[in-house]
Amino acid sequence: MRTTRRNTVMRACAVALLAGVTLFTSAGGAVADDPSASASPAEDGKAGPTEAGTTFRTATAIQQDMTATADASTGDYLYWVFPADTGQRPTVRAKVTLPGSAARHGASTWQVDVYDGLRRRQACMYGHQTRKAAADAESVELSCVLRTVRAWSEPWADDPLPGSYYVRLTVVGAAEEDLGLPVHAETEVTSVDSGGAHDVGGELAEPLVPGASSVEQAADTGDGTDKPRVSLGSEPEDGWASGWWTDRWLWTVGGGVLAALAAVFGYGLTRGGGRPSRVPPGV
């Protein structure tokens, strides 16, 4: 009887431990870094603005998962600004549709750069940040996968922090005769949650959102003329993260449960093996 009960406890503990390991294995796989990055903006992205700014101060504000477009000329600098929050790993994708090959005089090289709210250039982990388009190419696609946004960092560090991020798209090499030719640009920003593996012990007092990020509306100056109004920096549609919840809570609670199950398992082994079983009378 005692042996049967002990075996039942051991089987229950083993099943619980296996379930816990499966849970953590699947959770770890969900936040694993995926080095693959499609360069082309997603086709199912939400429609966004149809113009781009030409400087940091006039950058057009967009949200993540939103496809922005702009018609410009070869040689123009195109700027957009988007919000990125703690734990996110943004991916910027851009596509430039080039004029007909008959109008071009040679190949061209295009580049997409990303800057944070302090206008510090952020390095790309991987992607196609710079690409050369052949003289007969119809379009060129670019991508940049940033590092995971941290909640806090040392003042001297160059780590990505919560706030606004600027996208700059331009040609960095082209025949002089091709400058000024019309092009069509598309850009989209997506991100994945990298999980608690990148959490730190502090957080910023305020996100790095500059006071000027986009020009979208006109404000009445009172003298009968309209003057462009520069809006405040963009922020996520659901607001900035409060900073108290991370998946480390899940790992902590799960670890406690597994520790308790291991203790019960060990107790069952010790109790069952430490006492001799009773011998039925008459044997």
Rank of each mutant, 00 (worst) to 15 (best):
R57L: 13
L232D: 14
T170L: 15
A185L: 10
P160Q: 05
G282A: 05
S153I: 08
P182L: 11
P99S: 09
S242E: 08
G45Y: 09
M10T: 05
S164Y: 07
D238A: 15
V15G: 00
A262C: 14
A134R: 08
A212P: 00
R168M: 13
Q111E: 15
E176R: 12
T50S: 13
P83Y: 05
S139Y: 10
R2D: 11
G180M: 12
A219N: 11
Q63G: 09
T22N: 04
Q122R: 02
T170N: 12
L208S: 10
V171R: 05
Y165N: 03
V230D: 03
P281R: 14
P280T: 13
Q217I: 05
S277H: 15
A241V: 06
L250R: 06
R248L: 11
V215T: 04
R6A: 15
A14V: 02
R89F: 01
P49A: 06
G256F: 06
G20C: 02
Q111Y: 11
T170E: 14
T252D: 08
G29L: 15
A32S: 10
G127I: 04
E141I: 04
F265A: 14
F265T: 10
P35E: 00
D71M: 12
G28V: 05
R168S: 07
G282Q: 05
T74Q: 15
P49Q: 04
E206F: 12
A218P: 03
R229M: 02
E203Y: 07
A68T: 08
A263H: 10
T246Y: 00
A102N: 06
M125Q: 12
S164L: 07
A70L: 06
P281A: 15
K132Y: 05
G224F: 01
D136E: 03
S108D: 09
A30M: 11
A70R: 02
F265I: 09
A61G: 09
S26F: 07
A263N: 10
T97W: 11
A68Q: 04
T74F: 12
L261T: 15
G196V: 02
W156K: 13
S139R: 08
A42K: 08
Y77A: 13
A102V: 05
Q64K: 14
G254Y: 03
P281W: 11
G233Y: 03
L258G: 04
G87F: 02
T25I: 10
G28Q: 11
E51T: 13
D113P: 05
G254S: 07
Y165F: 13
A102E: 11
